[in-house]
Design a protein around this nucleic acid. Structure first.
Lengths: 338, 338
DNA sequence: CTTATTTACGAAAACGTTTTCGCACAAGCA
DNA sequence: TGCTTGTGCGAAAACGTTTTCGTAAATAAG
C-alpha cells in the first residue's frame, strides 16, 4: 500500500482534484452530499494529505525548531515539555536540535532553519555564542525567533528569562546569612548572559557587605577537568565555606567531590544551586536550590513564538518576559551548631 | 529578504533551472567553470534549497520521528541524546512527539507519520498500548519502525531492549541476599512489556526461594494517588522490607514517602530501582540501581532504523537487540548490623 | 420571459525542487 | 568526408497540494 493522494480520490469519485481538496477542507463551495461522499471515501482509504506538498504551496510548515545546548538536563527537558504542551494545542510539529554548547553547530542549525523548513525558532544559546549574526539572518528571512532562558543580549527579539541577577544576589545573601564567609561562585561561562547575571548578583551582594575577594571559577565544559578543578579548590589550604553552583551539572559534581573528600555539607561547606533537579529534596543532604520555572518558561516562549508566527503585524521586539525563580531552602545551607 | 530559489539564481546567471540544480549537486554533466560560477553566486546569496520541494519530488524527507511517553525522564533524555548523535551524522532531522502514556495520542501521532512527513519512526510505547495495529499500518505504508526500550510484543519489526527479565530477577535476588524477607515490586502497568518482564524476573526469584506471596503494586499514573498508595503501603501493619521500583519516578516517590514517614533506608527498608538517575550516588542514602544503557539503546535503535530506511532490502523483522543493564550496588541495600 | 444571482464544480497555475530526455556542437575515428 | 561518441546544457514533466478564476446550470428578481 502506497500513499493515497487527492488524484486517486478524484479518479475514484469521478470528481476533480480541486473539488476533493475543497471538500476535505469543508469548503462552502461544495455541496453537502458530495462532501459526505468525499469524507467517507477518504476515511475508508485512510487518506492523509502530504504535508510537504501543502507546505510548499502555502509557504507554511506548521513546524518549529527548538535549538538547545543539551538535552540531558532537567531544566531543558522541562522546558521542552512546556513547549510541547502548546505545540500540541496548536497542532504544530517540533524539531529538536542540539548545539552541544558549540557556536559553530548553532550557526549551522540556524542556517538550515532559513530554508523554509520551520515557521519559527525557539533558541537557548550555547555557552560559546557571543554574536547575534546568525539569528539576525534568520529574522531577515522573516522567521521569528524567541529566546528562552539563555538569551543573547542586544538581540532585537523576544526573550523569556528568569530573574537571574536577583537570584544570584539572593543566593549570596542566603549563604551570608548562614554565616558563610568565603563564598565561591561556580560558573559555566564568562560570556553566557545567564551566568554573567547570576555572577553579577553574587558580586553585588558581596560588595554590599564589603567583601573584597570575589572568587569566581569557570568550568571548561570538559566533565573530567571540571571535576579536577573542583577537587583542587575544595582541598586547597583555604577552601570556600559556601558555594553557588550556576548550573545543575556543577552542583552534582560538587556533591560527588565532597563525597570523595569527605567534606560534610552543611557543616564544613554550604551550598546553593541553580537547578530544577527533582531529586533535590532527597539528596544527601537535601539541596537548597534556586528553582527556575522551567516548564513555564518553555510554555511562555512557545506562546510568544506562535503569536509572532500567526500575527504578521506582531512585533516580538521589546517582548522580554521575566518569570521569577524561587529559592527553596533545604539542609545544604542549614546552620549547624558546633 | 525572502527565500532565494533556483529560479532566481538561473535568471541571474543566464542559465536554466536544471543547470543550477545539477551544478549545486556537483553533477558531471556541468562544466567546472559553470559550477564555480553557480557555487559562488549561491553562496553570496545564501541560497538554502527548500527541503519540502525536494522531499516532494524525491519522496524522502530526511526526517525521523521519535515517539515517547514522556520527556522529563532521565532514561528518555539519554536515549534522545543517543538518537541525536546518529541523526546528526546522517544529517537527518528529528521530530519529537509525546504520547503522554496515552494510546489514543500515540495512535494519532503514528497516523500523522503515515503522511510522508517522516522516513522512519522510533517508538517507545505508552503504558496503555496493547495492540500493534497502529504500527502495522505504518509498516504497510513502507515506513520502518524500530522500538526502543518499551517494545510491543508480537510486533514484526526491530526492537532494541535491555535484559528486563534477568534484571528483575537480579534485583530480587540482590534484596534477598541482603536479608530482606518481605519484598514488594512497584510497577507502572500490568500490560507494559518491560514492566511485565521485570515483574516476571522478580516472581521467578521469589518462586525459586519458595516465597508464596508476591506483592506487586501498580501505579495509576496519577502522581498524587501513587504517592498515597506508597504512603499507605509503607505505613501498613506489615510493611515491606525490600522494594523494587520499576521506574525512576516511583523510586523518587518512595524516597519522599520514607522521608515523610521517617522510615530509614536501608535499616528498615532496602530498595533497588530501575533508573538512570545521575544523582543516584548522592541521594540519601545512595540508591542501588539497575542502570540501563540508555544512550546506547537510543543510538542502536537509530542506527538500525537508518539501515531500514537506506537499504530497501533490509528486513527489520527478527532484529531484536538486547543491551544488558547493570546492577550498581549502593547504600540503599546495605546490610546494617543491628 | 429576460436578466441577475447563486450554487457547485473543474481547469489550471503555482509552490521549488529533481530528473529524464533531447539537442547542438565538438572531438575522435576510419 | 561520414560516422560515432562525448560534452554541456535546456525543456519539461513530475511530486501532491491549494487557490484563483471561469462557467454551466439552477434559482431568484424584475
Amino acid at each position: 500500500m502506497t500513499q493515497v493522494t487527492l488524484q486517486q480520490l478524484a479518479k475514484e469519485l469521478n470528481l476533480s482534484i480541486a473539488t476533493i481538496s475543497k471538500a476535505l477542507r469543508d469548503s462552502h463551495e461544495i455541496s453537502v452530499s458530495t462532501k459526505k461522499r468525499v469524507f467517507d471515501r477518504a476515511r475508508e482509504l485512510n487518506f492523509t494529505p502530504n504535508p510537504y506538498a501543502g507546505s510548499l504551496r502555502k509557504k507554511k510548515s506548521r513546524t518549529i525548531a527548538v535549538v538547545l545546548p543539551e538535552v540531558a538536563d532537567n531544566f531543558f527537558t522541562l522546558a521542552i515539555k512546556g513547549i510541547q504542551s502548546v505545540a500540541e494545542k496548536k497542532a504544530y510539529h517540533v524539531l529538536i536540535y542540539l548545539s552541544h554548547e558549540s557556536y559553530i553547530h548553532e550557526q549551522h542549525i540556524l542556517q538550515n532553519c532559513r530554508s523554509g523548513r520551520v515557521d519559527g525558532v525557539l533558541l537557548s544559546i550555547s555557552s560559546e555564542t557571543r554574536e547575534a549574526g546568525h539569528v539576525e539572518l534568520l529574522q531577515a528571512h522573516n522567521i521569528p525567533v524567541v529566546f528562552f532562558d539563555r538569551a543573547l543580549e542586544g538581540s532585537r527579539t523576544a526573550k523569556i528569562v528568569t530573574n537571574d541577577v536577583e537570584m544570584g544576589y539572593m543566593a549570596a545573601r542566603h549563604l551570608l546569612s548562614k554565616k558563610c564567609s568565603r563564598l565561591c561562585f561556580f560558573s559555566l561561562s564568562e560570556s553566557l548572559p545567564i551566568c554573567k547575571k547570576r555572577e553579577l548578583g553574587f558580586k553585588n551582594a558581596l560588595a554590599e557587605e564589603g567583601f573584597p575577594e570575589q572568587a569566581v571559577y569557570y568550568c571548561t565544559g570538559d566533565e573530567e577537568k571540571d571535576y579536577q578543578l573542583i577537587l583542587e579548590l575544595l582541598s586547597s589550604s583555604r577552601p570556600p565555606d559556601g558555594i553557588i553552583a550556576c548550573v545543575e551539572r556543577i552542583a552534582i559534581q560538587v556533591y560527588l567531590a565532597c563525597q570523595q573528600l569527605q567534606i560534610r555539607i552543611p557543616n564544613q561547606l554550604k551550598m546553593v544551586a541553580f537547578s530544577t533537579l527533582e531529586t533535590a529534596p532527597i539528596l544527601d543532604p537535601p539541596l537548597t536550590t534556586i528553582t527556575q520555572p522551567a516548564f513555564e518558561i518553555g510554555k511562555a516562549a512557545a506562546e510568544l513564538l506562535f503569536k509572532g508566527i500567526e500575527k504578521t503585524n506582531f512585533n516580538l521586539e521589546n517582548n522580554t518576559v521575566v518569570l521569577p525563580s524561587i529559592l527553596i531552602e533545604r539542609a545544604s545551607t542549614k546552620v549547624v551548631s558546633v
